[in-house]
Each structure stands twice: as C-alpha cells, then as structure tokens.
Simulated scan of single mutants.
Amino acid sequence: MAQTVNEATDLMSDKTRRPTSSFQVPTSVRYLFMVLVLGLLVLILLMGGKALRDAPPAAIHVSNQGLTVTQYRSLSQVMNQQKVSSFFTSDLQALRDIATGLAWVDQVSVSRDWQRGIVVTALPKQAIANFGTERLVDAKGAVFVPADSKDLAQEGFATLQGEISQAPVIMQQMQQVNDWYAPLGIQVEDIILSPRMTWLIRFDNGLRVIVDNENTAQKLLNLSQLLANQLSDRRDEIQSVDLRYKNGFTISWDISAPPARSS
C-alpha cells in the first residue's frame, strides 16, 4: 500500500516538474502592433484638430447684469463686431482686452458656457464726480467718458478740474477736504488744481478758498478749525479765504451779508 502511494506521489511530482510550453509573439509583430496604435492615436488627434478648425464660430453672449440699457448696447455692439473662432479655440484674453478698452468698463469676465457660448460679463466704473464738463471720475481717480452722455448731468456731483494725470491727487484732496469740513455742514462743489499747483476750492455754501502747494493739508485743516471756533460767528459773512501765506491768510468779506447777531 505504501508503495502504491509513493508511486502516485512520484507521478504527481513528474507532472509538476514537466515544463510548460509558452507561445512567444515575434518581435516584428509587437513593433507592428505599436506602430498601428501610435498611428491610430495620431489619426484621432488629426481628426480632432480638423474638427476644431472646421467648427462654426462660437456665439458671444453679453450679460446685461449690472449694466444700464445704454451700457449693454455699447458693449454688445463692440463684442458682436469681433471675429471669433470655435468654442474651444477662441482667445478669451483678447476678448477681455477689447471689452476693457471701453472707457466706462471697470472689470470684465469672459468664460465658456456650454449652453450660451462665450459669456462676457462687465462691471461699469462707478462715478462719484464730474471731471471737467465731458468726463466722469470714480473713487480711484480714473477719468472716463460715460456710455450715456446723460450721466454727465447728475445732481450732487462735485466738479474736478486739472490735468487728467493728476485726477487721483485731485480726488484724494477733495475727499480729505470733505472729511475736514463735514462738521461745518459744507462740502466741496468745485475743486481745481492749476498747472502751477495752486488749489481753488469752492464749497456748496459759496465759500471760496485758494491755497498753494506748500503745507496745503495743514493750511486747509487749520482753516476748518478756525471756522468751527474763532470765526464761527462770522462764518456766513466770509466770501473767500486766501491761504497762500506762510504766517497767515486773508479774508474777503461779503458786505451784502447781514451782520452776525451778538449774543
């Protein structure tokens, strides 16, 4: 019985040790297969590129969000004149640059949308004052021509005048003066910076102030304090103040103003 088991074990061992035959693909066949795969990939890429080139021009959709009717029409007219390629190959940065080229545009976003095409969204500059008679200026001092000329006649806007390059400086000066003179209940209506760096300021109560470019801020601040204290009783009689002096100033009185009542 033991001999029979050993013989069976030997037979199984022989089967285990028996070499297995494997089929080897010839090298030339493997190379041919790789060439076919690469060729197929190249063909797919070429067909995809041709499909992109032959694709119809993408539609440009201008969003009217945050825009007035005039601003929307202005932006749409400019964007509709642009020649664009397909949905995937259109140069979004070029379209963004064209949109920001409009003077009244502050920020622009251009994106791809499967349903609407290329979407252009713009935010307009927010004017807070007039610059001369034909332009507006925003809080950052950016001067621009509005899309609608009717925006030039807005009530409550102060008027800034000077070199366009000096617009940020003029805007900053106006904001600072308004802060200093706010306790007096007056604000700037016109402010001019001359080529010789002389400031001419007219307030909404008719008071006019002229000051040079030497210690300008300190002189204007001191005047606001004087008007609030020592000159408070005669404030309505003051027509103009000239601060172009190192050790003082001159006052022009309005002789037609009624005298201040004595307490």
Rank of each mutant, 00 (worst) to 15 (best):
M47V: 15
L227D: 12
L231N: 09
M171D: 03
G117L: 04
I118L: 03
I60R: 03
R17W: 15
G66Y: 06
E163Y: 05
T20K: 04
A122T: 03
A142F: 10
T20V: 15
L52V: 12
W180L: 08
N215C: 09
L36P: 00
H61C: 06
D179Y: 02
V177M: 03
V120P: 00
Q172S: 11
P259L: 10
I164W: 02
A122C: 01
A94C: 07
F33I: 09
A217P: 06
G101Y: 01
G156W: 09
A99P: 01
L231M: 14
F33D: 05
E155R: 03
P124F: 01
Q154I: 14
D151C: 03
I186S: 04
T133V: 05
F88Y: 07
A257C: 06
M79L: 00
A158T: 06
K15F: 14
Q71C: 04
N130E: 05
P26Y: 00
L46C: 02
A260V: 10
P195V: 13
T121N: 08
L223K: 08
T4V: 11
D138M: 01
T100Y: 02
D14Y: 05
E134C: 03
A228I: 03
Q230H: 11
M34G: 15
K150Q: 06
A8V: 15
A260M: 09
K140E: 15
T89Q: 03
L200T: 13
A8N: 10
A153V: 13
L193N: 15
R53E: 15
W104K: 05
H61K: 06
A129V: 12
P124T: 02
Q82W: 05
G206Y: 11
G132V: 12
F203Y: 01
I201A: 04
N178V: 04
T89H: 04
A147T: 07
D254A: 03
V143Q: 00
P259E: 05
Q230G: 03
R261G: 15
R18Q: 14
L200K: 14
P183V: 04
S262M: 14
K219I: 14
L52T: 11
I255R: 08
Q154S: 15
R261Y: 14
E214R: 06
Q172D: 14
L184V: 05
V69G: 05
Q175V: 12
I118D: 04
Q115I: 12
Q230R: 09
Q65R: 07
D179T: 13
K50H: 11
A139V: 14
N130Q: 06
E237R: 13
A2G: 13
F131K: 00
E189F: 03
Q230S: 13
L92T: 02
I118Y: 07
T20M: 12
L207F: 04
L227E: 07
R135H: 11
D254V: 12
T68A: 02
D14M: 09
S21H: 15
A257W: 11
I44D: 06
T89R: 05
R202L: 11
G248P: 07
E134H: 12
Q93E: 04
S85N: 10
Q93L: 13
T216H: 01
T198Q: 10
Q175F: 08
A153C: 08
R17N: 14
G185R: 09
P57K: 02
F87Q: 00
V119W: 00
V5R: 11
G49L: 00
V35I: 15
N130F: 08
G206L: 15
F157S: 00
Q173H: 07
D97C: 02
G141V: 01
P56E: 03
S22K: 11
S149G: 02
L193R: 15
S109I: 12
P168M: 11
